[in-house]
């Protein structure tokens, strides 16, 4: 057969060879079929380690907090709020006290309303929590002015100031 018939074939073979050669360099060595088989385990194995190496932001270790703040831990221990992890209100501890040296405290009214805005949902755990109507109960005021979230009974904390108008 004449040469012009074969020529396109050589071109195709050349391109295929080029792609295979490029693939050898581009695809990582650990890419392939792993533990979960062809359908679910086709991946780069090193990525599992990449995810493991992610740095945690939250500590969620009560002893870590109480180590330096035993007074706060003691105060909180008799409160119903003792079930709330410190970092839910004080933010992720990360490397505190080195980094960051100060944690931002969420003292907002909205923070309290997460649990204490009354919702008439008898089938949920919300019904076990004492709640207020945010539109009626001193709207626009920060709860922590009257209620100490660490106090053993935050509801009954005496008003430090005259009652609000």
């Amino acid at each position: 057969m004449k040469n012009h018939v074969w020529r396109p074939l050589f071109v195709v073979l050349g391109v295929a060879a080029l792609i295979l050669a490029a693939r050898m360099f581009y695809v990582p060595k650990d890419f392939g079929v792993h533990d979960q088989g062809y359908m679910y385990g086709f991946h780069r194995l090193g990525n599992e380690q990449d995810w493991k190496d992610q740095k945690p932001e939250y500590r969620f270790e009560p002893e870590y907090c109480s180590g330096c703040h035993p007074d706060k831990a003691e105060e909180l221990s008799t409160s119903p709020h003792a079930i709330i992890p410190c970092e839910d209100c004080h933010g992720p501890a990360k490397g505190h006290p080195e980094d960051p040296p100060k944690l931002p405290i969420d003292r907002s009214r909205e923070q309290c309303m997460r649990c204490h805005a009354y919702l008439p949902y008898a089938q949920s755990g919300r019904s076990n929590i004492r709640g207020i109507d945010p539109a009626e109960h001193n709207p626009g005021t920060e709860c922590v002015i009257c209620h100490d979230p660490h106090h053993s009974n935050a509801v009954e904390t005496p008003h430090p100031q005259p009652p609000l108008p």
Binding site: Q36, G41, R44
Partner: peptide, 24 residues
């Protein structure tokens, strides 16, 4: 979600977690 990935960027680990390879 893993079956439909055309490039093998998402996968299931041996201990049963589905992850995404952000580089892939």
């Amino acid at each position: 979600c893993v079956q439909v990935c055309p490039v093998g960027a998402t996968y299931k680990t041996a201990d049963g977690v589905v992850l995404v390879d952000r580089t892939w």
